[in-house]
Design a protein around this nucleic acid. Sequence first.
DNA 1: CCAGACGTTGTT
DNA 2: GTCTGG
DNA 3: CCAGACGTTGTT
DNA 4: GTCTGG
Length: 228
Amino acid sequence: MCGRATLSKSKAALEKRFRAKFSPIDEDQKIVNYNVAPTQLHPVITNENPDQIQLFKWGLIPFWAKDAKIGSRMINSRIETITEKPSFRNAVKRRRCLVPFDGFYEWKKIDNRKQPYYIHLRTKEVFTMAGIWEKWKNPENDQPVYSFSVITQSPSKFMAPIHDRMPAILLPEAEAKWLDISIPPQEALQLIRPLEDDLLAAYPVSNQVNRVSENNPELLVPFSPDQA
DNA sequence: CCAGACGTTGTT
DNA sequence: GTCTGG
DNA sequence: CCAGACGTTGTT
DNA sequence: GTCTGG
């Protein structure tokens, strides 16, 4: 699955990559993040505003929710069932988004412990995960809250030894199509396929990443079991 | 009809 | 809001 | 995803 | 064990 990730590129670099601009509202928001976690704000590009990069909350809050905290259980949506689930099926028809990252973490079970791995493109470039988004109105104050969920799929041959799920990573040429909601879900979901094995690289990192409060480039230093 | 869930992962 | 279960 | 809390009453 | 928060 996918519940932690990184985005270490500058706002300018993202704007260039996606030919889209951050909203002036988010001028003061820092986006570099070595430990992106659910409930945090993260940049997304939506079908509704493809020329903008907006900050949405990770963990989709269904429009009918009475309470925002349900979002922390909606951080991923399985490609196998996304068109059926009441929480996701409307969003996959009408509200798709690209979620930019330059890496993500997965925890591999080894005996009785869990070893975090960092996974990234060999090129170290930014890539996008296929996402869906939602607008939820907080009944407490009538303020809208925008949130998203990242789609997961079966692991590729490369990912299988590390974990039994992996995020839906889109090839750059599939990005515009994912955002085109005139393409029905059934067809759009076919853009999602296990990534070519030779595009990815992975290595173990220290369990510092377990703590959301740790957030610095040191998290990406390769971990060797013999260090003290 | 009303009440309650609506999700994923991982573990047992 | 909509579906499932009772 | 993992970490950390998980409760009430009453007093400071 | 299960839920909430980040």
